[in-house]
């Protein structure tokens, strides 16, 4: 199957500090690839580098397009969107305005209706400032923003981290729905979530990929538990 994202020999970091070293992997079209690792392994750094937010060397191909030196807005327009871990929002802007920005003015009401159908709570709070949403609702907004742009690849950073179990039960079906529409690269520490959603997994340690393969196989042979144990 062709790869929607191909990363080769990626080195990236903050300022003079290199965090990621010689990272190479693929996200095949139509799959959910889990990027796993302990805190500080470099998972979020990898997503930021892919979205053009950090200096990097190596090669990043989105489909056949070399996006290594592209800026974030161009990467987004090309079809790769990011759902950040910290559920970032724009202070003072409403839920509706966030969804409008995500779509950049294209068929806005249809997109808003889609997001509201997936997460009814968002539909009830369209005119509420996004910064006043709970953590779980912000995660929903992040996923809703990704959904409405019909991307080819979604980078999702720990969507279930720090969220109440009852909200996780709402988020997982939504992520499963996204899986039907786009390829997903899912950063996750929770093995159960990875198995529920993922097909393939890469394990990152100290900025280096140390394991890769079928997520179930890595779970069955104890690799994931061993690598992610504290």
């Amino acid at each position: 199957m062709s790869a929607v994202l191909t990363v080769s020999n990626l080195h990236a970091g903050y300022g003079d500090t290199t965090v990621l070293r010689d990272v190479s992997f693929e996200v095949p079209a139509g799959e959910v690839v889990c990027l796993m690792g302990r805190n500080g392994a470099g998972k979020t750094t990898l997503l930021k580098a892919l979205m053009g937010m950090l200096r990097k060397t190596g090669t990043v191909l989105l489909g056949d397009e070399d996006i290594t030196s592209w800026k974030g807005h161009r990467i987004n327009a090309a079809g790769m969107v990011w759902v950040p871990q910290e559920s970032s929002v724009f202070p003072g802007l409403t839920v509706r305005e966030h969804l409008v920005i995500a779509q950049r003015g294209n068929n806005v009401e249809k997109g808003i209706a889609q997001a509201a159908e997936l997460f009814p709570v968002l539909g009830e709070r369209l005119e509420q400032e996004a910064q006043t949403l709970s953590g779980g609702e912000r995660k929903m907004l992040g996923i809703g923003q990704a959904l409405v742009v019909n991307p080819s690849l979604i980078l999702m950073d720990e969507p279930t981290e720090g969220v109440a179990p009852v909200v996780v039960q709402e988020l997982i079906p939504a992520i499963a729905l996204l899986r039907e529409r786009a390829s997903v690269m899912l950063v996750e520490q929770n093995i159960d979530t990875a198995i529920a959603l993922g097909t393939r997994a890469y394990v990152l340690e100290h900025g280096v990929i140390v394991e890769s393969g079928d997520v179930n196989a890595l779970h069955d042979d104890g690799t994931l538990a061993g690598r992610l144990a504290l």
Binding site: M53, G72, H73, V81, P84, P91, V149
Partner: peptide, 11 residues
Amino acid sequence: RNPDLAETMGI
């Protein structure tokens, strides 16, 4: 208000 988020959302 959040230039990094704006950039990654396509602005």
